[in-house]
Amino acid sequence: MLPYIARRLVFAIPTLLAVSIIAFIIIQLPPGDYLTTLMADWASQGGAVEAGTVAAMRERYGLDQPMYFQYYKWMAGILLHGDFGISFELGKPVTELIWSRLGFSLMLSLLTLCFVWAVAIPIGILSAVRQYSISDYTVTFLAFFFLAVPDFLMALGAMYVMSVWFGQSVGGLFSPEYVDAGWSFGKLLDLANHVWLPVIVIGLGSLAALVRIMRANLLDELSKPYVTTARAKGISEFELLIRYPVRLALNPLISTIGWILPAVISGEIIVSVVMSLPTTGPLLLRALLAQDMYLAGSLILLISVLTIIGTLISDILLAMTDPRIRLT
């Protein structure tokens, strides 16, 4: 088990490196470097820029140096000082802006993942065990339907329904009175009151995918000889189902975290924009539209890193549940 985890951890390093390079490329993509943008910004606001400041910042970010050196400076800043650079649009260090939003993003993604799993498994089992029944067909059709509706449409639809039919405005994770309040039981309750809709909206697409996978896996497992063996022992049908085929069908399901998680995070970003949730989504969009590239690049980097960590955790989980992976 330990060598397996160690191997996975070592494998993750080049991935992290590659992700940071991609994020850096995105930062560098817009024409002109970041100081020109900054100066143009300040100039447009009528402020003069001291030559000394500019030179200092050029030095600080190594803007006169070749590209790989800038990358090195940027990475060194992050790894050694936790410095992600400055958001010029908001005039603050990136670190000040992102952590709370990243926290909410993480929370939302994890909640969605839990929701998706908790719902997908029983529906998948039902659909497989009652193959070709009315409920199977219904589930299958609904799954296809939700796979076809993009997240943001689902969000818009949900908001439309809530506002027109229930007269509720949807948006944010808190009621206005709690937004700036400190954490309390009331705030938690308020959060719970708001969070379920985005969780469902983000999750439905992945839920549909997962139901399909669970159904297919289980159908595969149900026809395997070990099921007959267990049945020949005299085990009851329900216990048999849970102990053997379902248990085995869960293994490939765990490995889907590797791509469900990126999908959920993608969905979280776009849904947050539509529902104006205080997560990374709206901030990223705003940064990108304003070409506030250090902020945008840092967000993309952190989101990707979180995803890679999530995938790593799912790998380890898989090894824990499947001896074939753990022991060979």
């Binding site: 000889p225 070990y226 007959t228 248990r247 085995l248 293994n251 549940t321 001896p323």
Partner: peptide
């Protein structure tokens, strides 16, 4: 008892 002991026993 069955023909294929590998697939007739649960691997996990």
């Amino acid at each position: 008892i069955f023909q294929e002991p590998m697939s007739s026993l649960s691997p996990v």
